[in-house]
Computed example of a mutant assay.
Amino acid sequence: MDSRTIQVDGVALHVGVTGQGPDVVVLTGGPGCVQYLEQEELSPAGHRAWFPEPRGVGRSGGGPHDMERAIADLEGIRAAIGVESWIVLGHSWGCDLAVRYAVEHPEVVTGVVGIAGRGPQRDRSWSEAYEAGKASEPISAHAGH
């Protein structure tokens, strides 16, 4: 895994990179989590994977960030490293960031992979249905026999 420092709006951001092939950026949860996915074993096979660490977290400089700042930093990193387009993969809050980034920059996103995100509109209707299902009485394996 190579380690790079990328300047975005005057702030040094840490980005790990590994592999060869089409580009994919891997985003962690949080906001405010260190880049816990930056491991070669977790890198998508057959891709060049980029692992940015958020502004103000771990090895990255700067102060706190919100969704808008994270989107701007992600786009700044992409432009600085010279990647024309990439797949955006996010876990948890990183999934929400991936979707919002893709909505705001569709010309540079070739795909989105989301793992355990909540969605950019914070639509929790799926959660209500899930919770209602959990609350119902479990069906016995011997019911009706």
Rank of each mutant, 00 (worst) to 15 (best):
V57W: 14
V57P: 03
G58T: 01
R59I: 00
G62P: 00
P64W: 05
P64T: 15
H65L: 03
H65R: 15
H65K: 02
M67L: 15
E68A: 15
E68R: 14
E68K: 10
E68G: 10
R69C: 09
A70L: 15
I71W: 12
A72V: 00
D73T: 14
D73I: 04
D73Q: 09
D73W: 14
L74A: 04
L74D: 02
G76R: 12
I77V: 14
I77E: 04
I77C: 12
R78C: 03
R78L: 12
I81W: 13
G82F: 07
V83P: 00
E84R: 06
E84Q: 09
W86C: 02
V88L: 00
H91Q: 10
S92Y: 12
S92Q: 11
S92N: 07
W93N: 13
W93E: 02
G94H: 14
C95T: 15
L97A: 04
A98V: 07
A98C: 03
A98N: 07
A102P: 07
E104Q: 14
E104K: 12
H105R: 15
V108P: 00
G111I: 01
V112G: 06
V112K: 06
G114K: 02
I115A: 06
A116M: 01
G119L: 03
G119D: 03
G119S: 07
Q121V: 01
R122K: 06
D123S: 12
S125Y: 08
W126D: 07
E131T: 06
G133A: 13
